[in-house]
Amino acid sequence: MSRFSPDNLRTALEILSRYPRAKSATIPLLHLAQEQDGWVTDDAMAHIAELTGTTPAQVLGTCSFYEMFKREPVGTYLVNVCTNISCQIMGGEELLHHAEQTLGIKAGSTTPDGTFTLEDVECIAACTEAPCLQVNYRYRHKITLAEFDALVDDLRAGKLTDEIPAHGTLARIRQHIPADRAAGNADPAGAPEPVWLAATAPDAEGASS
């Protein structure tokens, strides 16, 4: 399964409806593809190209720029250890080295059973909680080496499946704009001056003249 399933296609169309130009939905749709398959397949990119009115090459061009999109299968759990400056000086590199030992793989690779992929990542905005890591983009702050091992055990034992979904699923709550509340997209090719601005135009910083 690589093109969007009927359910995901509905989600994709809802996402598309929120942008004045379809191409803007490229990144959200790549996330949706990754949620469906765990990684971004060529067929999914072809489907996204159809939906956004672009070409598969254009979708690939965007996809390949962004760190989070994986164009080959990765582990169920993507373990991202931060080694940037605040973490580095608080033991982030030691944590990464320990993770390599515990998982038996080098950063950038996946365990043979396909459970874990380990990455050495840039700052993830938890600098005061160093050293820190993310598993499928769920944080662990101020993590010790022993806590890392316990985390790996818990993940292997399936104890954290409620908190940490399999790789690909990002936010589990999606935005829905109710039809009766929607203001609608602002068409870049021609939208009038907003009524609330026009009503006060003579006083409004020369906003219309």
Partner: peptide
């Protein structure tokens, strides 16, 4: 948020967009 906010003539949609690591 949305159409005629708080009963006024002010209307706007806010669209949540996720980045992807860059």
């Amino acid at each position: 948020i949305g159409k005629n906010i708080h009963g006024s003539d002010f209307s706007v949609d806010i669209v949540l967009h996720w980045g992807a690591g860059a």
